[in-house]
Write a protein that binds this DNA or RNA. Structure first.
Lengths: 259, 259
DNA sequence: TCAAAAAATCCCACATTGATGGATATCGCG
DNA sequence: CGCGATATCCATCAATGTGGGATTTTTTGA
């Protein structure tokens, strides 16, 4: 761990459970000397990543809020997908979300909670594993060939455990089925009774950028309605794709180094 | 500028205007050698603050979204003030926002845009100067005495330019008036024609944590309605203060090192 | 407003590592 | 799949990060 990494690791201690840290606690936690830890804190504070609060303590700082604003403004999934997602949620009376891939996780970047949204539904800033849930699975078939290969090589166990293929051919077959359907439906993968229906979003060149999905408790929707909901999701996702393709929605670069 | 600062300064180049930077551009911008710049980028990527995207470029990364989520979850102004703010906006049919102080700026942490919200209205993540606008001014009278003194000493020119007192006594008198009113009304301070009405939010110990306000174009509301709106703002702010005081809304530490 | 306590900065020699310019390995894309 | 682009590796040494007190500044509460 070099000094750059040590400094940044200080950010990791600020969680919703323990959002305030005194200087002494930070020094203790960091394992560095007092002077060195003060130095790290000072740089983070000057950069706005930490902010001083009463009683000599620190919390995460305003620069994070600003950077997140920049992320939102630049993310075509967020800006291009937002209005169609809200429309979808309103029309179907279910909760909806937009997700993207980062490395080996899927992250929710925008959510719209309808009345009675499942408690377990994930929200902006939360990550989930890559091989669980419709929002993630529906993106995988559209990744570049080399990305799929890398994914498979790194995660064959998780893929098999998720029932997505016990070998490369099985995985490809699974992906082809999802691709053929144009959407993905999962039940009980994050929590018992929770259903996800998701469809992919693309940029103008046809690269997958993210996914849009609905989440609901299976007691709220009969299975006979799934096809209709899937159609609505695909339709809204197509609308989002068109908005993204118009070029007015930030930087439409697909993820690299996936897996 | 030490290496820690240089590394973090790379984050500053990622703006909504230029959200994607190639490695070569970053190297050029940083002024460091190729190896050094790659080293910085690698640490930032490993920490999740940058993410690789297609064509060898980088964008701001997922950790920012997560950290912002942590900020939201811990901020009593955001969580405690949110529902009363939405209620206020709905009831008055105007746009509303929540703000807090950071160092020498005021930042919006939550906003609710009603139909016909002014274009200029600021939003989560945006900063404004400390001595302009109701959202900021209404917090100043409640700062600790030493903070007011420091503020005055550092910013006497801005304070005078803002018409908030040409000397210390004048400034204190101005603050006392705002304090006595329990709210603040400003017109045209950010933009011509834009009115702000704001009231402060406090923690259980009576320290100021932030402010809640309405924003509208003066053509939309007659001056005769200002007192009624001010009353509604104060009432909603009081409700937020009570919610914050219940202790269920994050870390209610007031800002330190203000100014 | 004041004074004591707490927090933050300063100091500077030297131990440690950050920086660097090619060589080499790995990854991405068509 | 193969080649060009990107990222990592290497090892010396110049540069700076480190640390334990002393000192200064800020905060807190009466």
């Amino acid at each position: 761990m070099n000094s750059l990494e040590k400094m940044l690791s200080l950010l990791d201690v600020f969680t919703p459970a323990v959002p305030v840290w005194s200087t002494d606690d930070l020094i203790r936690w960091s394992g560095a000397s007092r002077s060195t830890c003060y130095r790290y804190v000072k740089v983070l504070q000057d950069a706005g990543l930490l902010t001083p609060v009463a009683q000599g303590a620190y919390m995460l700082g305003p620069r994070i809020i600003e950077l997140d604003r920049n992320v939102r403004a630049s993310d075509p999934v967020y800006t291009g997908g937002g209005p169609p997602m809200v429309k979808l949620a309103t029309r179907t009376r279910q909760s909806a979300m937009l997700c993207i891939l980062f490395s080996d996780t899927v992250m929710c970047v925008r959510d719209f909670r309808h009345r009675d949204a499942p408690e377990e539904m994930f929200a902006r800033g939360q990550r989930r594993p890559l091989f669980v849930g419709a929002a993630s699975k529906v993106m995988l078939p559209y990744l570049a060939a080399h990305q799929q290969r890398t994914l498979y090589a790194k995660h064959r166990k998780s893929i098999a455990a998720a029932g997505m293929g016990s070998d490369w051919e099985g995985f490809r077959k699974y992906l082809a089925q999802v691709r053929e359907a144009g959407h993905c439906i999962t039940r009980g993968e994050f929590s018992p009774g929770i259903v996800g229906i998701a469809a992919p979003l693309f940029n103008g060149a046809g690269d997958v950028l993210g996914s849009m999905g609905l989440v609901f408790h299976h007691a709220k929707v009969t299975k006979a309605e799934f096809p209709r909901l899937a159609q609505a999701v695909m339709s809204a996702a197509q609308e989002a794709t068109e908005r993204i393709g118009s070029g007015a929605h930030g930087a439409d670069r697909p993820a690299r180094a996936v897996g």
